[in-house]
């Protein structure tokens, strides 16, 4: 490993340096002050409050009542819906995240070339990610996969088979939502595109000289060189996946038969439908622990499969 440490200059006038450093900090902090203020007031503050509320029974309109660990105990011992919501969310994450990554990488590979109009295509393919979380798209999805929706019309036209109500069928409802989030592949795609540009062309040229075909080049050069990007996208999508809310709230409301009862939706129900804010806060902290654990596991595993160019033995 090459050392590129900057030599530390001897401090000739320490007091002047300190004064200057204070001034530097003051300026730096004043620049980030608006963000910092927002962070303290709207992120850290509510987090502390929500942690405290998770030990209370709080119906919003009357004052919170301290009940110790009861919310947490109830969640794990007498709440079958919690386990259902957790199961649905895990299933959703395990299926949708790899599919979304694979799909966005595939599209990125397609758009990596330098042909005419590629910029336009990149923009077009990013559009679903911009509008995907919106109410309009959710409504569109309901119509598309409904009993008389476009999907069934196409099936009828192509194969002559009548379709089902995909959203109301307990076996397919979750899949329509998975399809929706995969369709929003824009941001991982953009990051993959940037990653693809970083891969040195010489590697491909050398491989081509050695007679490696496209598939070999993909698996031996592209994928290994992209692993840091895959890792980043994986972590981001994992967190997104666990906190998915809008799609199930708007399209299926958790039904049919709780098959799309995402964790975040279940939490929302407790907070804003049942007005059981303390319980909802406890659910939120458990979710944080779960997402944190999942992320930590991915980080832990990264040394085994993520390859950083800078780590190359010098």
């Amino acid at each position: 490993m090459t050392t590129n440490a900057v030599p530390v200059t001897a401090t000739a006038e320490p007091r002047l340096r300190t004064a200057r450093r204070v001034k530097d900090y003051a300026i730096a902090y004043s620049f980030i002050a608006p963000w910092l203020l927002g962070f303290l007031c709207f992120t850290i503050g509510p987090m502390i409050v929500s942690f405290l509320l998770s030990f209370t029974q709080y119906s919003v309109t009357s004052a919170p009542k301290w009940i110790g660990l009861r919310n947490y105990v109830d969640i794990f011992t007498v709440d079958p819906q919690f386990w259902i919501a957790l199961g649905v969310t895990l299933k959703f994450v395990i299926i949708s995240v790899p599919l979304k990554l694979a799909f966005s990488l595939a599209v990125a590979m397609l758009l990596h070339g330098n042909y005419r109009g590629v910029g336009v295509y990149r923009t077009i393919f990013y559009v679903p990610s911009l509008i995907g979380g919106s109410v309009a798209v959710a409504e569109m999805w309901r119509q598309l996969f409904g009993l008389n929706g476009a999907v069934n019309n196409i099936l009828q036209f192509l194969f002559g088979v009548p379709g089902d109500n995909w959203i109301a069928n307990p076996n397919t409802a979750l899949w329509t939502l998975i399809l929706l989030v995969i369709w929003q592949f824009g941001s991982p795609m953009l990051i993959f595109l940037a990653g693809l540009r970083q891969i040195p062309k010489e590697l491909y040229e050398a491989a081509a000289v050695d007679g490696a075909n496209g598939v070999v080049r993909f698996f031996r050069i592209t994928v290994p060189m992209l692993t840091p990007i895959i890792f980043f996208n994986l972590v981001m999508q994992l967190i997104h996946g666990f906190t998915t809310f809008t799609q199930s709230y708007l399209i299926t409301s958790g039904g049919p038969l709780n098959r799309t009862l995402f964790y975040a939706l279940y939490l929302y129900q407790h907070a804003f439908q049942f007005f059981d804010m303390g319980y909802a806060c406890a659910l939120a902290w458990i979710l944080l622990a779960i997402v944190g654990t999942a992320t930590a596991l991915v980080f832990k595993s990264s040394s085994a499969w993520v390859y950083y160019e800078s780590e190359r033995g010098a």
Binding site: R142, G146, L147, N165, I167, A168, G255, P256
Partner: peptide, 9 residues
């Protein structure tokens, strides 16, 4: 059946 009524909002 619910497949018909479920998506009436």
């Amino acid at each position: 059946p619910p497949s018909v009524t479920q998506s009436i909002s």
